[in-house]
Simulated assay, not measured.
Amino acid sequence: MLSALPSLDGLEFAPVSRPEQGEVDPGTRFAYHEDDGLVWADYRGGEVVHGHLVGTRTGDTVDFRYVQLNRAGETNSGHCTSVLTRLPDGRLRLDETWRWESRPGSGTSAVEEVLPS
């Protein structure tokens, strides 16, 4: 299934807020890449020292697993499914449903495209 929305390749995203059981916050930055349905990103900021996600995109749905190192020196991992939409101002948004696999907890969150300054 093809999407009418553009590739995530080369785009930067930031969380809208900090989820209750999450570690990312508006200071976290995700650098996305996409190639032929494969999606990956590196991220850091807030409580996250370094994170990486890898997955696939089918249409406007991105399904990925993530692993990250937090400031306390702990590594954690989880699974996320995100739906890509376009905001009224033209930027892209990913509405996420996620769950930790390495510890208890799950939630929803959103990241929005950060335009170059």
Rank of each mutant, 00 (worst) to 15 (best):
A31D: 13
W40L: 06
G22S: 05
R18G: 04
P19S: 05
G78V: 03
R86Y: 11
L87Q: 15
F13I: 05
H52V: 10
L53N: 03
Q21P: 00
G78T: 02
S17C: 02
R71V: 12
H52D: 03
R71P: 01
V67C: 05
R44H: 12
L69I: 01
E34C: 07
T81E: 13
L84S: 08
G90H: 15
G46P: 05
T75S: 07
L53P: 01
Y66N: 00
H79V: 06
V49A: 06
L94Q: 13
E47P: 06
L84D: 10
D25C: 08
D60N: 15
L94V: 06
P88D: 10
R86K: 14
T61H: 12
V24S: 11
G90E: 12
G27C: 06
T28N: 09
D60K: 12
D60F: 06
D89K: 06
R57T: 12
T85I: 07
V49K: 03
A41I: 02
V54Y: 13
N76L: 05
G55M: 04
L94D: 05
L38C: 12
R91K: 09
T28D: 09
G22W: 03
R86N: 08
V54E: 14
H52I: 09
P15L: 09
A41R: 02
V54N: 08
D95K: 07
D60L: 02
D89A: 06
A14V: 04
P26H: 08
G51P: 01
D35R: 15
L69E: 00
G59F: 05
R29I: 15
N70G: 02
E23D: 10
R93I: 03
V24F: 13
V49H: 02
P26I: 00
T85H: 14
T28K: 04
L87F: 10
P26F: 03
Y32E: 11
H79M: 03
D63G: 03
Q21M: 06
D42G: 10
R57N: 11
P19L: 01
Y66D: 00
R44M: 02
Y43M: 00
R57A: 12
G45C: 09
S77H: 10
N70Y: 02
G90M: 09
G59A: 13
P19Q: 05
D42C: 04
G73W: 02
G78Y: 05
V54F: 13
G90R: 14
V48K: 00
W40R: 10
G27W: 11
L94A: 06
D25W: 05
T28H: 11
G27P: 00
E34Q: 15
E74S: 10
D60P: 11
N76E: 05
G90Q: 14
T75R: 08
D35W: 12
V48N: 00
D60T: 14
V83Y: 12
Q21V: 04
D63E: 13
